[in-house]
């Protein structure tokens, strides 16, 4: 045991230290301390949680009102050289609509100081499957195509830090799967990837690690199961089907592991603070009482449920 907070990684590339950001009276982020290393970190939270503000600060676009952010020990706002290593896909659906996709990505490559910007742009467009549409004006593109073009512009200089704010917005399921595969492959290549989303299933598919935010604060950190396990003050909910629900219910009422038992038509809904022990003890209890359990389903391991809990806990 190192005693390290789950919001911190062992080998940080980006370090956020006690960072707050406010705009007038409105607090967007409050005393955030976390770090990011290689692999994909999902920044998860509902709209207005402060994810975009944090990502903008990580990229050096916005200055923290308090606290510090460093990338390999350097403040991104004072070191434009760091931007050789950073790719950002902002949340806004913004492109230069008068440019073609090729011109747009080539412009990104030129600004990044690449020696062969045209080739780098062609490679990046091919990576996001836009080679065939590369010479069409961005104003004619669908939202999903613009999004892929923006991803191409963000990766054209092969950054080792990639910050993506809601990158899957507007993409269809096929494009989404490809972008997820691309993000995963960049991370497997050694990049530090930070992906924000309010769509829970997306983060589950993309990220190795999750930082969950609500109301500008860090609500939880770790992998999904670890976040859930850390919430010891909130009971797990388990749905159980058995051949004699009433008998099983009566058996569980008053049991020290169980905080509540209700019958919901054809199943029992059990709440417990110790899912692991219940999972071991319940079958034995049922067998001893001659009851046959046909289904044991913890219902709240999805991110949706985790977020419901996090919101309630705040």
């Amino acid at each position: 045991m190192t005693g390290r907070s789950p919001a911190l990684v062992a080998h940080p590339i980006i370090e956020v230290n006690d960072v707050s950001k406010w705009f007038g009276d409105k607090v967007a982020n409050s005393k955030l301390t976390c770090s990011f290393g290689q692999g994909v970190t999902g920044l998860l939270g509902p709209n207005g949680a402060g994810k975009t503000t944090l990502l903008r600060m990580l990229a050096g676009l916005t200055q923290p009102s308090d606290g510090t952010i460093t990338i390999d020990g350097l403040d991104p706002r004072g070191h434009t050289k760091l931007f050789e290593r950073i790719g950002l896909v902002p949340e806004e659906d913004a492109v230069y609509e008068f440019l073609t996709a090729r011109q747009y990505v080539t412009y990104a490559a030129q600004l990044s100081g690449l020696s062969e910007p045209a080739q780098a742009a062609a490679d990046a467009l091919a990576t996001v499957q836009l080679a065939e549409s590369a010479d069409r004006k961005l104003g004619e593109f669908s939202k999903g195509m613009k999004q892929r073009t923006r991803v191409a512009a963000a990766i054209t200089h092969r950054p080792d830090i990639l910050i993506l704010d809601e990158p899957l917005n507007g993409t269809d399921p096929v494009q989404r799967a490809r972008l997820i595969a691309l993000i995963r492959s960049l991370a497997e290549g050694g990049a530090t990837v930070i992906v924000s989303s309010h769509v829970l299933a997306e983060v589950e598919r993309i990220a190795d690690r999750v930082l969950a935010m609500t109301n500008g604060r860090l609500a939880a950190a770790g992998n999904i199961e670890a976040i859930r396990a850390a919430m010891t003050d909130i009971p797990y909910r388990v749905r159980v089907e058995a051949d004699d629900l009433r008998a099983l219910g009566a058996l569980l009422i008053g049991h020290p592991l169980i905080t509540s038992v209700t019958i919901d038509r054809v199943e029992l809904v059990i709440e417990t603070n110790d899912l692991g022990t219940l999972g071991r003890d319940l079958p034995r209890l049922a067998i001893d009482s001659g009851i046959r359990i046909t289904r044991f389903q913890p219902e709240d391991m999805s991110l949706e449920a985790v977020f419901g809990y996090l919101e309630k806990r705040r």
Partner: peptide
């Protein structure tokens, strides 16, 4: 909203 595109570069 293209300021980020322009300024997040090593320029």
């Amino acid at each position: 909203k293209t300021m980020a595109f322009l300024t997040l570069r090593p320029v």
